[in-house]
């Protein structure tokens, strides 16, 4: 009973996780400029692989794998916004422009 439940939970989690990862990759292609693409990669991508790791943690019984997978998720959540922020800052500083449909840019001056 418990086994079946953990199977189903893990299954649902990996399905949602992989959908998020896939949509993040699609977003890389569909969004117009580097800054908007960063939204897709840093949010949907992070949640995708985080969910997959959590599914592993929920399904595998032993504690050591559980803690390692959890540590991986926490680490990922900590680093993803930092790298996105740094990349955005660097691209803006050297002059990669926002897309033409942008409505406002208060960082310009």
């Amino acid at each position: 009973m418990i086994d079946g439940l953990s199977d189903i939970i893990a299954g649902v989690m990996i399905i949602t996780g992989s959908i998020f990862a896939f949509l993040a990759a699609v977003g890389l292609w569909r969004l117009p400029d580097i800054y908007t693409r960063m939204h897709a990669a840093s949010k949907a991508g992070t949640l995708g692989s985080g969910l997959l790791l959590l599914a592993l943690a929920a399904h595998v019984g032993d504690t050591s794998t559980f803690t390692r997978a959890l540590a991986g998720v926490v680490f990922f959540l900590l680093t993803a916004p930092i790298s996105a922020h740094l990349l955005a800052k660097a691209s803006y500083a050297v002059g990669y422009r926002l897309t033409d449909i942008s409505v406002i840019d208060e960082l310009k001056d």
Partner: peptide, 11 residues
């Protein structure tokens, strides 16, 4: 990120 997802699913 995708590679990490792969590792989790394979595991």
């Amino acid at each position: 990120a995708a590679a990490i997802g792969f590792i989790a699913v394979i595991g």
